[in-house]
């Protein structure tokens, strides 16, 4: 199973095995990773699963969809070029080793 690493803004690091097809958000929520709220449950409706993706993985991600782009404009922590909603990142084999940083606040 691909390993996904979540690093909080204070530096707490958790590495989780996330099944292919699940989202980075689901990997966090199902394993009690703090810093990802996912209030709407993964429907790209709330922007509380915002993460900063480590730059080298960006080319491996799907392009940002229109829904996600609009939602990213409403995040509680500043949007950066590597901002993504983790409910929109579906885990695949190539993403093994993915590192995401959770922002200081989601709400």
């Amino acid at each position: 199973m691909p390993k996904i690493t979540y690093i909080s803004h204070t530096g707490t690091t958790r590495t989780i095995d996330v099944p292919v097809g699940d989202t980075v958000m689901e990997g966090a929520v199902q394993n009690g990773v703090d810093g990802i709220v996912a209030e709407c449950g993964g429907n790209c409706q709330c922007a509380t699963c915002h993460v900063y993706v480590e730059e080298k993985f960006l080319p491996l991600l799907d392009p940002i969809g229109e829904d996600q782009d609009a939602m990213l404009d409403t995040t509680a922590s500043p949007r950066k070029s590597n901002s993504r909603l983790s409910c929109q990142i579906h885990v695949k084999a190539e993403l093994d080793g993915l590192v995401v940083h959770t922002p200081p606040t989601q709400q």
Binding site: D22, E26, V29, Q30, N31, G32, G41, G42, N43
Partner: peptide, 23 residues
Amino acid sequence: QRPPLSKGFLLGKQEQRHAELRP
């Protein structure tokens, strides 16, 4: 969460564990 039940869950794209709000 109930919203997926009438959408991805019926299509087999989501399972119970995806709908659970927290473990």
